[in-house]
Each structure stands twice: as C-alpha cells, then as structure tokens.
Design a protein around this nucleic acid. Structure first.
Lengths: 189, 189
DNA sequence: TAGATACAGAACACTTTGTTTTATACTAAA
DNA sequence: TTTAGTATAAAACAAAGTGTTCTGTATCTA
C-alpha cells in the first residue's frame, strides 16, 4: 500500500479513536475528524464513504485481529471446576485487552461502548463455535445450540463490560473465573 | 396537562416511533420527525431540547410502565426445576411485550434496537433486585452480587433479543424456560 | 525520469440545526 | 363569558455540516 495512503488512514483512525474516547459517536462530525487528523476534506471522502463506514472499518481492525489470534490458540476444556482457568482463551482475550493495543480499552470503556461491544459479540460467536461446538460440548437436552452460543458470547461481552465499568479492579484471572462459573452449567463434560 | 400539549407530544412520539421502526436513529433528522408529526418547527423544540432527549423520554414511557407493573406482581421462587414457570415475572414480561403496546416490538426488533435493549436492561436490574436480592436468593460463594444481578439482567435482555430476531417462533413459555434454565444455577434454593 | 496517484484547498449547492420574531388559536380558571 | 396565559404556526435567520467538483501540487512506483 502506498505510504501516503497508510499515513492518512492511520491519521484518520487515530483522530477518530481519540474523539470517540471523549465524546459520543453521534456528536462527532466528519469535519471534526478531518480537523483532528489534519487532512483535506477531499482526502477523507477518498478513504471513507461516510462516518459509518469509518466506524465499521475501525471495528474490523480492532476485533478481527484479537479474535483471529485467539482462534489460533489450542482448544481445551477450560472448565472452572477442572482448575484450568489459566489456559482459557477467555483469559487470553482479557489479557489482550489489558495490553490496550490501539487504545481499544478507551473505546470499550467510553460512553458509546455499545457500538464496539456489539461488534465484539458478533465476532465472539465464531470463536465460541470453534471452541465448543466443534467438539460437541454444547449439546444440552433443554436448550438449542444457537441459544447457548448466543448466551455465552453475550455473557463474555457483558463480563468485559462489568470489568471495565468497575475500572478493572479485579485481576484477569478472577474475571475469567466469574465468567466460567456462569457458563459452566451449560456445557457437557 | 393542556390538551394541545398532550396532542402534539403524542404526535411526536408516534412519528418518531414509526420512523425508528424503519430507519436508523442516527439517520433520522429532527426535520423528518417534524414533518411526519405535522407540527411546527418551534413546537418541537418547545417540547424537546434535542433528538436525544426525545429518545430518552420515549424509553421512559415504554419501559418504566412495563417494569413498574411487573414490580407490583407477587414475588416467587420461579425456578425452572420446581415447575412454576407459569408464575414467573419474566413470563409476564414476555407476554406484555407480545401484546405490543405502543409498538414496542417494532422498536426492539429494529436495526437500532441496542438503544432500547440497553435502556431495558438498566431498568431490569431494579426488578431483579426486588425479585431476588431482597429475599437473599443471590448469595453465591463464588460470585459477587452485583455481577450476578448484571448477568441476570443481561441474560434476559439477550434472550428477548434472541426471541425477536427469530421472529418469535417459540412460545413465551418456552423462552421463559430457556432463560430460567440459564440463570437457575446462580440462585440459592 | 515519467506516468500515475494521493493529496490540499477552495468553492459549490444543499441540508440540518436551533433560535428569534410575530401573529393566531386554544385553554383553563375567574 | 370573559380574560389572561400559553401552545402553536410560519417565516426568516446564522451557523454548521455534508458530499461533490475542480485545479494545482507533491509524492510514489515502475
């Protein structure tokens, strides 16, 4: 990719991320992004059709990477009761968040975090499927599989939200235990 | 309240609700609401400071009523295992939604339903607290109470979302059973 | 070095926003 | 029924934002 393109693209992402950390998405104008990124008006529209498309691409950059690396990890049982919390993909995800690449924490903690949590959740489903469904761990006589996958994804996202809104007081291991304790009853062993 | 005030207020709410059912919140302009409600520009701003305030007041009208009536219901154990699903407040809530007062279903099923689901969730916490926490049913040696309350609220909202996005194929009783099966392991008995 | 491309800057018509002003119609209470 | 208060309509307004087009310049790649 042309160095110039990458440079302006990064400038836009950075400006947008900083703005999102301090004000609501709806209240951010394209003009503000342009000013903050210090680029020409034409340039912005050459890169992104609208503000919504910019958001979408930002989300892709943020979460696709995180989920994809997690997908590459070896799968395991990861039950709370079997004491292997330390090996859980979910612990890995939390630690990845904690490292705060690309100021992802700022966005997930911001006032308008629903946007990102929603995107996070939809990406998580793929991970859940590869972790549990492939191994037949989700079979449950009372509940349909898609309901369980949805529930587990939502539970993790909500756990992250709980953790962040409490300023990450708890260790990643503790939060992982909370989460695993909540989803464990839904899994076959 | 002045009849004229109530009349325009209703006109605004109706117009806004109809617009929300077919397009995204961000893409709706105040001008469109004004046109749809067939009122004067000045009148709108006499009622609502901004579009965001209008949304907030709409949410209050929609959910405060539902939750408040549910709060008035007698409390019970409502465990899946004890077979008293029929008495659950949650079943009552689902039926209330199904009646579709004020086209609440249209909003909860719309593309931008996060806004409403989020508001729904925060109101639900009050209900969960009155249902379970007061009776000491949430005590759990492994998990803090606020985490459990948050989890139960989120689980119900996500269950509603699951139900609606599948076009309400399942009966309210079945959905209630799914939900109770998921939260039951977190409760003391 | 040459052709292609990304960028800046300015101008553009257009929409939206929130306010102000003036005049009219309605309502609630005396 | 009258009256004083108030809700509304209509028009005009400045300010800001949107998305596009054009021209000239700088930068990249081959």
């Amino acid at each position: 990719m042309d160095r110039r393109q990458k440079k302006t693209r990064d400038a836009i992402f950075n400006a947008f991320t900083e703005l999102l950390a301090k004000k609501n998405y709806n209240q951010i104008s394209v003009q503000e992004i342009i000013d903050a990124a210090d680029i020409g008006r034409t340039t912005f529209y050459a890169h992104f059709e609208t503000k919504d498309f910019l958001l979408k691409e930002l989300c892709e950059e943020l979460f696709d990477h995180i989920i994809d690396t997690a997908m590459g990890l070896p799968h395991g049982h990861y039950h709370y009761s079997c004491g292997c919390v330390a090996d859980s993909v979910f612990l890995h995800l939390l630690r990845h968040l904690q490292e705060n690449d690309l100021n992802i924490l700022g966005l997930l903690s911001s006032e308008n975090n629903e946007i990102f949590l929603r995107y996070f959740k939809s990406n998580l489903k793929k991970l859940i499927l590869s972790q549990y469904a492939d191994k037949g761990l989700l079979k449950n006589s009372r509940l349909p599989e898609d309901y369980i996958v949805n529930h587990i994804s939502a539970s993790f996202v909500e756990t992250v939200d709980f953790w962040l809104s409490g300023n990450m007081k708890e260790d990643t291991e503790v939060i992982t235990e909370y989460f695993l304790a909540v989803i464990e009853p839904l899994l076959k062993d």
